[in-house]
């Protein structure tokens, strides 16, 4: 009996196994703007599926924080193979969960403004935090962070709350890296120029800035690229500050519990190729992590080019964040 059945069985098994292989699934947790119709998600998924004989599943969670949250909630039973969309602010917390696996890939193609040799996280794009201003409302914006802080109080800016938003935290770190322990005093001076502190970038950008409520908003140095390339308007530009700009790097990582690690690593390698990177500039509106050469859209040459890159080691951010936040709160509610 067993003997007569075994060929059948193995044939059946082979079918099952091969069909699984043919449509091996790669589940990636990411954020909505990456996965959306206008984000790089669909094009990148298609490009990768062409070369991997697999199926890519993008699951969009609200933000980088949510991706990490979900990963922690699911622990070792997570259905994610990769997480994509963490950044320098959340990296360290993600590392401490122990739920991520080393990527083991070659990072030499990276062209970030800082050296990068992390064993867990692979960058896929980067950008600077910057204030974007409406050229029609504000012909001559402040030329430095100092100028902004010392500007008359009728100059209004919109920022995001560092307790709930990534750019908000970015500004906190930016101020910290420029002024060190003086940062709280500078916040007190900046306070009167802050029209409001929104929960998220979207709230401020959509509800306030695009309604003309304030001429400046905390955003990314790359934001004008979208307005110039897609909206065909030069009305919104970033201001270049003399002190330099704080860097944000967006990263992806492999999940330790994944059953498709080999495929996951393939994706991480693919991430640093042109087929992936060419979709970053205009669809994610960030700088590509590798050199795109002539494929980098022309508008990117019109963006500000900060002379100094400000950047804290993620571990330092992680260990100081709550203290810095409390100082900020004190300064702002003083």
């Amino acid at each position: 009996m067993p003997n007569r059945l075994s060929p059948l069985l193995s044939a059946a098994l082979f079918c099952v196994v091969s069909s699984v292989q043919a449509s091996e699934e790669l589940t990636i947790y990411t954020h909505p703007s990456f996965a959306s119709e206008w984000g790089p998600g669909p094009a990148i998924t298609e490009a990768f599926e062409e070369q991997c004989d697999c199926q890519v599943n993008l699951v969009a969670l609200d933000s980088g924080g949510d991706i990490l949250q979900r990963l922690r909630l699911e622990g070792s039973s997570s259905s994610a193979d990769l997480v994509l969309g963490l950044d320098t602010g959340t990296m360290e917390t993600a590392r401490q969960t122990g739920l991520l696996a080393p990527h083991d890939i070659d990072l030499s193609a990276l062209t970030l403004p800082v050296d990068w040799s992390d064993s867990l996280f692979v960058p896929y794009d980067w950008g600077y935090f910057a204030f974007v201003y409406n050229t029609e409302q504000l012909p001559t914006p402040p030329a430095s962070l100092d100028d902004l802080i010392n500007a008359p109080d009728d100059l209004k800016i919109i920022i995001q709350d560092p307790r709930t938003s990534t750019p908000g935290l970015g500004l906190l770190l930016w101020m910290r890296s420029v002024y060190g322990d003086q940062a709280p005093e500078k916040w007190v001076k900046l306070k009167n120029k802050i029209l409001t502190t929104t929960k998220s970038w979207s709230d401020g950008y959509f509800s306030l800035f695009m309604n003309g409520e304030a001429p400046m908003i905390l955003s990314y140095s790359t934001s004008p690229a979208y307005h110039m390339a897609i909206d065909k308007t030069d009305q919104y530009q970033a201001v270049q500050f003399e002190e330099g700009h704080y860097l944000q790097v967006e990263v992806a990582a492999l999940v330790e519990a994944s059953e498709h690690k080999a495929l996951g690593r393939k994706f991480l390698e693919f991430m640093l190729t042109r087929d992936f990177q060419r979709h970053i500039p205009l669809k994610n509106v960030m700088y590509p992590a590798t050199d795109l050469g002539a494929e980098l859209p022309g508008v990117f040459s019109k963006l500000i080019q900060p002379e100094t890159t400000l950047y804290f080691d993620p571990a330092e951010v992680a260990s100081n964040r709550s203290r810095w936040l409390n100082e900020w709160l004190d300064a702002m509610t003083r």
Binding site: H31, W38, A60, D62, D66, S202, Y205, S223
Partner: peptide, 24 residues
Amino acid sequence: ALFGTPAQPTLPVLLYQQLGSYQI
């Protein structure tokens, strides 16, 4: 937003996707 959405968004999710992609 908590539970994660596959490629198919509901209306409010679509709205936030558009906001996140500068589709003002």
